[in-house]
Amino acid sequence: MSEEYESLPLEDFINALSSQLDRAQAALTLKAASTHLTFAVKELNLQLRTQVEAEGSVVKIRPAAPGEREASILNIAFTTVTRPMLEEHRLTMQPAEPEPEMEVEGEAPAEEEDPLKQHFSEEERRRLEWVGITNADQLRRLLPQRDPRTIERVANIPAFRLRQAMMQERRPVVRRIVRDDEPPAPRARNGDGEPRGEGPADRLRLRLEGRNLRREAVRGVRVDGESVPLVHAGDRALIVDAPQAAGNSEGRVDVDLADGGSLSFAYDPQILALGAGITVHPAYSGAKP
């Protein structure tokens, strides 16, 4: 980690300082798990030797470099914020209700790279951290609740790029298909107690794993062209009852999305029959005009 003597806007310095103090406090709290006693930072006062300059309306500072004995001294004081103070100033945020996820048997899906890395540089991610966005989930949830212009100003990232990244992160994704061992629902019976229509023996339960697969994002699923009953639609998995014949035929799934588009992919039914999960790369067909 190399030091640098570039100047940066004063507000960026304060944001970075605040964010790094938060990290220090979080680490102290984690360490307290065994002792039940931790230290909390009460006050921090930094007398920073710095060069102060102005570029237009932006006040910039640069920590004093070696040999700069006549630098200015900037006093920055942080103090404890009480809960009432915090509540008075914080923006209203309604975190999404976490959905209990079902256990997935068999091969665990590969660890995904942090999606924020796909959209933003390391410096941009650091700036997003200053506004409380540290992962893709927070981007999805918090961006619609905050004024994009504020985030644009603090994070110095154009609002259209933030929106673009958020839209991509909110799009339904299917990454894996696996045969689900949970037995399908029992068949309905007619008045004589005889099974009616197709039953458990005729159905093959499939689990499609990915993200953003909630019911409001998915209109339906077709297996080999036939619409199949949706048993479960959660953030990370769709469960459908496909016809048993799907285990022998070509193996094609279309997930019809609420935006009018669809995710389509093919799979090998013989591999599925062995109980192994199959990683898939669906093609997205856009919404019909």
Binding site: L46, Q47, A64, P66
Partner: peptide, 18 residues
């Protein structure tokens, strides 16, 4: 001459029950 002129940091902490 190659050392940064040091700034000064005052920090106070207190112990809290976790």
């Amino acid at each position: 001459g190659f050392d940064i002129a040091p700034s000064r940091c005052r920090i106070s902490v207190r112990s809290v029950e976790h």
